[in-house]
Nucleic acid binder design. Structure first.
Lengths: 204, 204
DNA sequence: TAAACAATCATCAAAAAAGATGATTTATCA
DNA sequence: TGATAAATCATCTTTTTTGATGATTGTTTA
């Protein structure tokens, strides 16, 4: 029995590359491709592949969002994330949204076939680099309050404490308190690292 | 007469995609591929293709640097830049370093063939999106010096001017000068926004 | 080779952030 | 309802950053 494969990627060359790699495989049934999330969803209304190879960067929607939708609408369709870069937060989001595995675009034919075969068995598959990234402790942001987040955003936009206090209709000492509790919660000692951590953990 | 084509890209799927697209073309002589700058240069010592398709993101060297080297060592070899993203500064750097054109990885087979044929005629070729990007006075990250980048990275890691001066074996005023020229070049008024812009423009 | 730029150092002043402590008033939630 | 946490304000000191200006020494490169 052949495995139905569908691919969503906005890069024609990658689609063509994967098609070329898989076209002579007896175990693979190439069902087609889409270059954006919308046409992928349209395709799924008519056909259900066994595995979707899904780029995480799509023009109309993020791959993680599409993954979530697909997983909810068609739980039997397996998703393999696909991307150029090795970003742990993205990988984790893909998994949280129901992806069965993750490949980088420098994967070989063997790796691709193995990934497909593994997820069809109900297992997960991660490219070596992705697995390494997953093992690294995640930059998960600490729990901050609504107000602290507002202050954080204004700091990131370059406003001084005085300006922030005006914008939020609070006193400067209060802004300072929030600022300091942000530094404490993020375990950093100055604004530079605060902003860095906040961006990298997806808060900004 | 066939045109000898060589490709440098660290993504196997892209190499395979292009190979698949070009393999039955009468006008194309597929000379091979490399997945990093070093093996590309090694290949060039033995053979000279007419056109190199060159990814701008390589593991061992930036595509722009490789482009420069290739252009100096083998002026007759034409370079077509290739990338996922549409970054104006990169495109401009590639051109400055002697590239004859620029393609995005979502290019179609027709576009690819046209690009190759145009550059062989001695013309330049830019994918539509790249051409648009070149026309727009887009604000990607400003040009900063080696030293400024070092300072920027240390600032982002949370070091104070005093600590940076120790680490780089320079005086504090000097660190200050670099810091200020960074603020100026990024057109920001404080460290918070500096770090934000630097991260978002991919410098950190 | 001259011009342009990078990297270095200096001084003085002001503005801003960071650190330490303590306290009051609302929300929120078990 | 009582405990907990959030949001607010205050004062004071120290450290750090930012601003303004000027100058020297190498390095690239057109």
């Amino acid at each position: 029995m052949k495995a139905g494969i569908f691919i969503v990627d906005d890069h024609y060359m990658v689609i063509e590359g994967i098609r070329s790699l898989l076209q002579n495989e007896k175990t693979i049934d190439w069902m087609g491709h889409a270059t954006n999330a919308a046409s992928c969803l349209a395709f799924l209304k008519q056909h259900q592949p066994d595995v979707i190879l899904m780029d995480v960067n799509l023009p109309d929607k993020s791959g993680t969002d599409l993954c979530k939708e697909v997983h909810q609408l068609y739980p039997s369709v397996l998703v393999l994330g696909l991307s150029t870069f090795n970003q742990q937060t993205i990988i984790q989001n893909m998994i949280a949204n129901g992806a069965s595995g993750y490949l980088l675009k420098n994967a070989t034919k063997e790796e691709l076939l193995e990934a497909i075969s593994e997820v069809l068995k109900g297992k997960n598959y991660f490219s070596f680099e992705a697995a390494v990234a997953l093992r690294e402790p995640q930059e998960k942001h600490p729990l901050i309050t609504r107000r602290e987040k507002e202050v954080l955003q204004l700091i990131a936009e370059g406003f001084t404490n005085a300006e922030i206090s005006e914008k939020l209709f609070i006193s400067m000492p209060t802004v300072n308190t929030h600022r300091k509790s942000l530094l404490e919660k993020f375990e950093v000692k100055n604004t530079a690292t605060l902003i860095g951590k906040a961006i990298k953990s997806g808060l900004l």
